[in-house]
């Protein structure tokens, strides 16, 4: 499980995070929403071990993440595929960087290509693939890394609305069959409610948790859920929390 306890962070004199606490139980999905620049990406980077917080503590399965990489699979908004590797070789980058057996990772990735809608593209170069495919490949790389904790930083942020909705439903289906613990950072309230079990709303900088909204629907969820009355009222609660204490996100 993931524990973030009174996380604080400053870049020089700029306070980015101010008292962020939350837990994510094993196998649960938590989404962080908030206005631009509220420090939600910094939370993920702290959990990934890339940034040491200036205050508070964070741990995954009881082990502190401060200065310790390799406990969670992190995926940034950009797909960050290596241009000099074909799709299949890109899928094993995370596993290889962790020092796992390359052939086993290859076999595992190969088995998942169809599930990720990438069958037939194993030997393609990244520049030959569409944005949606590249993003799926980046997700595939994240899964093949073989870590139980996934940290997703706006994984669909760079995609068009239709592709994004497709990928959200597909990811929800995929995760329903697995047992990952996930933290997702997003601007998209629908995305947060559609995928997560709990949505945390962060205030503008310096970020603090201002609301917690549960999303108690069983997985996998139908895409029509977004028009459900209960879903809409939860969405309204999140939007209201986002509206507090500052100008709208821009």
């Amino acid at each position: 499980m993931i524990v973030a306890d009174r996380l604080q962070h400053r870049f020089g004199t700029l306070g980015v995070l101010d008292d962020v606490s939350f837990d994510v139980e094993r196998g649960r999905f938590c989404a962080l929403v908030g206005p631009s620049g509220c420090g939600k990406s910094t939370v993920l980077r702290i959990l990934a071990g890339l940034v040491a917080p200036t205050g508070g503590r964070a741990a995954i399965d009881g082990r502190s993440v401060v200065g310790r990489v390799g406990q969670a699979a992190y995926m940034a908004q950009r797909d960050l595929l290596l241009p000099w590797r074909r799709a299949l070789a890109n899928a094993t980058v995370g596993a290889e960087a962790r020092g796992l057996d390359r052939h086993a990772a290859r076999a595992e990735a190969l088995a998942l290509f169809g599930r990720f809608g990438l069958a037939g593209f194993e030997q393609s170069w990244p520049h030959q693939m569409s944005g949606g495919m590249r993003q799926r490949l980046a997700l595939l790389r994240t899964f093949v890394a073989g870590l139980d904790v996934l940290l997703l930083d706006e994984p669909f942020g760079a995609l068009d609305a239709i592709t994004r909705r497709d990928l959200q439903c597909w990811l929800d289906e995929f995760l329903a069959e697995h047992d990952h613990t996930v933290v997702l950072v997003t601007h998209d309230v629908d995305e947060a409610l559609l995928l997560a079990d709990e949505v945390l709303v962060l205030s503008p900088r310096p970020g603090a948790v201002t609301a917690r909204v549960a999303s108690p629907y069983p997985h996998p969820r139908p895409s029509a859920l977004v028009t459900d009355a209960d879903f809409v009222s939860r969405k309204a609660a999140i939007l209201e929390a986002l509206g507090q204490g500052g100008p709208p996100a821009g």
Binding site: A48, G49, L50, V69, G70, A72, A73, Y74, A76, L80, V93, G94, E96, A97, R98, G99, A145
Partner: peptide
């Protein structure tokens, strides 16, 4: 570089 690093490379 960060991507490789955060996987422990």
């Amino acid at each position: 570089v960060e991507l490789i690093r955060c996987f422990g490379g």
